[in-house]
Design a protein around this nucleic acid. Sequence first.
DNA 1: TAAGCGTGGCT
DNA 2: TAGCCAAGCTT
Length: 346
Amino acid sequence: MDAKRSIAETLLDWYDRHARTLPWRAPPGVRPDPYRVWLSEVMLQQTTVATVRPRFEAWVARWPDVASLAAADEADVMAAWAGLGYYARARNLVRAAKAIAADHGGKLPDTEDALRALPGLGDYTAAAVAAIAFGRRAVVIDANVERVVSRLCRAAGKPAVRRAAEALTPDQRAGDFAQAMMDLGSAICSPKRPKCLLCPLADACAAHRAGEEEAFPVKPAKKPRPTRHGTIFWLERAAAGGGLEVLLVRRPAKGLLGGMRALPTGPWTETQPGLAEAPAAADWTMLNQQVSHGFTHFTLELALAVARWDAHSAPIAAEWWRVDDLAAAGLPTVFAKAAKAIGRVR
DNA sequence: TAAGCGTGGCT
DNA sequence: TAGCCAAGCTT
C-alpha cells in the first residue's frame, strides 16, 4: 500500500474492484432503495449472507415496500420469518413499518438519530442505513469492522475499536466504506486463517506485522451452555375432509420464539418433565425417540408425546392445522424438527 | 451490565 | 464433525 494514501482510499479502491453483487445492493453510483437496505440489515443481524439471500428475495417479492409491510398480517410476517431465528426482528420490522407509515410519511427517515429511534434499529443498523441508503457519514461497527479494525490497529476492547473506526471512516462514501469493510472481513480478514496475502491493507496492519492476526479481536470467555429437558405434544385428529390435523398453539409475544406458531410444550426443566402440563387429558404415547436442539444459551432435549383427539373442539385455545400443510404454518426450526421426527411430515 | 434471544453455513 | 460464528437488539 502506498503510505501516502489513506486506509479508506485503499479499501475503497479494492471495493470498486471486488465488491460482491448482492440483491440489496444497487449498481455502482446508484443510491439503493432504503427499504431494501433496512430489510437486508435486519435480516443480516447475526445471520449469514448465504442464509439471507433467498429469504430476502422472497420477502421483497411479497412485501416490496414500507406500505405493504405496514399493512401486512402479522401472523403472515411471523410465518415468513420462520427458520431465520431471533424472531423479535420480525415483530420489530412490522412495528417499525407502521411507525414509518404513521410518523414519516411512509419513507424511512434519513438521519442516524431518527433511524435509531425505530424499533429493531440499534447503533449498528441505524448507522448502516444512514450511510448506505442516504449517504450520511456514519461510523458503522459490526463484527466485521470490529475484526478488521482491531487487527489493523491492534485495538483491544470496544472503546478502542470505536475510536479507531471513527478515525478511519471517510467523510465521503461512508456507506461504501462500511460495505467494503464487511466484504473484506468476509472474504479476506476472516476470524480463522485470514488471507493476508490477498489483503489490500496488509502493509498497514499492525496485527499482521506482529504475526498475531488471530489474537484480535479479543473475545470474552464463553460460558458453558446448560441442557434443559422438555416434552413436545403432538395431538392429532381426523380432518373433516379426510387426512389429519394437528394442534398448534401460538407462543407468548415475548421471550423465546415469541409470537411464533408452535407445537404445545410443557415446562423446560433440569430433569425430564414427562407429561407435565400436557395440553389435553389424552392417552399419550411417549415415542422412543428424542429431539435435540441447540439455542444460543442452552441445549434442549425433547421427548415426544403423541395422542389422538376424538372430540370436535380443541382442548385449549389453539388451532387445528392440516398436517399436509404443516410447512406453511411457519414453525420455528425446533418444532419443524420435532414434527419430522414424529414422522407425520414428509 | 450482562443475559436473553435462533439458526444454518462453514471448517 | 462438533464447534464456531455471524451485517445485533432489548431489557
